[in-house]
């Protein structure tokens, strides 16, 4: 029994220029204690998927058109406000890309960290503060008694991200959704934060959904990876299979365009064209216009994610037929 099961999620944005299908039929599951990576380029729908689960989609213009997200028997997409308050922020927590804009600049760090505790648990302020101190220590902030009473602007980027992680983990969530938590950080600081997420995951035994565009980060951290393109999942597999035996042409193209996997100075592989306009209907495979293997049937026939091996599924018609 999975911890979170998302089924046929569709999140559309109704704008003046038409209906923008940001997430268009996404299904996946996350087990307890597992790390799932979601990779994709900007606009692929990886963040919108997670925002939908967390109920963070501004409605309007957004609308969740269909789908369910079952977390331990409760559908997060159709639960009452009271029900979802019991889960969001307590059992499912989220951290964001930019720790400067996601912390409240007018509140002391201490107040922000204990807020989820005061809301979700019957706890006195003194006890909550004690827990916050422990948490700050656990995420590697030196001298937490003093630092706790500072404001976010008095911290560096890496330290702010640690504060965010402390805030997300203080209620001991079962699932952490991390939306590009290291993209805004320098590589040496990124290494610290990834190490921290790994350690906290082991200590708390929580599941993690890690959203990123960096295949390198995924390779070291995640058990399973799913690749998104144009609002759909195009391939999902365990990390080793995805990196060593990718089947979908988009996954393969992504790998071939990374400089570190190619011989120095060689011409990098480039994917021709641009991602599709999501406000136009896409009857066939969304990647077909840019795919070097595409045929007429790819453009016209709808393609579903299909299992090719246990735990390995992809949505390429020609690969499913064994043609490529």
């Amino acid at each position: 029994m999975s911890l979170l099961t998302v089924n046929d999620l569709r999140t559309y944005f109704h704008t003046r220029n038409g209906v923008y299908r940001a997430v268009d039929g996404v299904s996946f599951a996350v087990d307890r204690g597992e790390t799932l990576g979601i990779v994709g380029e900007s606009g692929s729908g990886k963040s919108v998927t997670c925002y939908s689960i967390m109920g963070l989609i501004p409605q309007p213009p957004g609308r969740i058109e269909s789908g369910t997200a079952m977390f331990d028997g409760v559908d997060l997409l159709h639960s009452t406000a009271a029900q979802s308050r019991q889960i969001r922020g307590k059992r499912v927590a989220m951290i964001f890309q930019d720790p400067m804009t996601s912390l409240n600049p007018y509140m002391r760090v201490s107040e922000q960290i204990i807020e989820p505790l005061l809301i979700h648990e019957k706890i006195s302020k003194t006890d909550a503060t004690r827990r916050a101190l422990e948490m700050l220590e656990a995420v590697g902030i030196n001298d937490p008694e003093k630092r706790m009473n500072l404001y976010p602007h008095e911290f560096s980027g890496g330290m702010r991200q640690r504060v965010m992680i402390a805030m997300a983990l203080i209620t001991k969530p079962e699932l952490l959704i991390a939306d590009e938590p290291t993209t805004a950080l320098d590589v040496t600081v990124q290494a610290q934060i990834l190490e921290l997420i790994r350690k906290m995951q082991k200590d708390l035994g929580m599941a993690v959904i890690f959203i990123t565009h960096d295949l390198g980060v995924v390779s070291g951290l995640c058990d399973r990876v799913q690749v998104m393109y144009a609002g759909r999942i195009v391939e999902t597999a365990d990390t080793r299979t995805l990196f060593y035996h990718p089947k979908h042409p988009y996954t393969r193209a992504l790998q071939r365009s990374i400089p570190s996997l190619q011989p120095k100075g060689s011409e990098l592989y480039t994917i021709r064209g641009l991602p599709p306009d999501l406000s136009k209907p896409l009857p066939g495979c969304p990647f077909a216009p840019r795919c070097e293997f595409a045929e007429d049937k790819c453009v016209n026939t709808a393609v579903q994610l299909a299992n090719v091996a246990p735990g390995h599924a992809h949505a390429c018609l020609r690969a499913q037929l064994g043609e490529i």
């Binding site: 590589v187 040496t188 290494a191 610290q192 295949l215 390779s219």
Partner: peptide, 18 residues
Amino acid sequence: AIPTPNPDVERSRQRIVL
């Protein structure tokens, strides 16, 4: 500190975390 997109290499190597 640079993550490499290669799971076997990535998991076996020693990382210097500053």
